[in-house]
């Protein structure tokens, strides 16, 4: 459905915006390395089923997400390392890993390796933006491209919500994926404050600056 497709393309667009920002400005300043590593972990643990992916659409997106994230991490850790300031990227990710690990171990759909890792990836993704938002809060402002990146990334999961509602009514099984939906709503709520400032400032041509 349209929400699902727009969501996935928003996710892809966010990655292109981030790569464009890094290469255009020859700098990864303002980007949280920790968040990027968390996303890498999200993709690895969620796409363990990559070799068995039957849909070409999903297969292509999975390969694109994993490879582009690897490239982003390479750029931040090697090519543009001097522009990456670890002193601003101080969020304690062990809390996020603990949160996702605990929920994955307590409430997986099934106790299989794939299911536990899948649940871990869903919960971890829901909070993986926090180091980035924390960094943004410390600097108090962001370049336009960084703001566009975070907005596109946030829109992706927000668009999955109408997708789930649409699927609930259009599919005969009326199934609700409680883990994905709960985590997806949590993820979107975490962005809400950012979305508000993005909407009131950046979309009106102003700089992204916290009050």
């Amino acid at each position: 459905n349209i929400f699902r497709v727009l969501g996935d393309f928003s996710h892809l667009a966010s990655i292109f915006i981030l790569l464009h920002k890094i290469q255009q400005l020859k700098s990864c300043s303002g980007i949280s390395f920790k968040s990027q590593v968390l996303y890498m972990l999200v993709y690895i643990t969620r796409y363990l089923d990559l070799p068995w992916t039957s849909s070409p659409y999903n297969f292509i997106f999975k390969v694109l997400f994993i490879s582009s994230e690897l490239y982003i991490i390479y750029l931040m850790a090697r090519a543009y390392k001097p522009t990456n300031d670890p002193n601003l990227d101080t969020f304690h990710v062990e809390f996020l890993l603990g949160f996702a690990g605990l929920l994955a171990l307590l409430f997986p759909y099934k106790y299989t390796i794939l299911e536990v890792f899948w649940a871990f990836s869903i919960w971890l993704e829901s909070v993986a933006i926090l180091p980035q938002l924390f960094m943004l809060q410390r600097t108090g402002e962001a370049e336009a491209m960084t703001a566009h990146y975070i907005a596109a990334l946030g829109m992706y999961r927000a668009l999955y919500i109408p997708n789930w509602i649409y699927r609930y009514f259009s599919e005969p099984t009326h199934k609700v994926d409680t883990i994905a939906v709960t985590a997806g709503i949590l993820q979107t709520i975490l962005y809400s404050d950012f979305f508000w400032i993005y909407y009131t400032k950046v979309m009106r041509g102003e700089k992204f600056k916290l009050p």
């Binding site: 849909s55 899948w118 199934k175 994905a180």
Partner: peptide, 10 residues
């Protein structure tokens, strides 16, 4: 089967 169905998302 139940668990398989939702893995059609990214």
């Amino acid at each position: 089967k139940e668990a398989k169905a939702k893995k059609d998302e990214l």
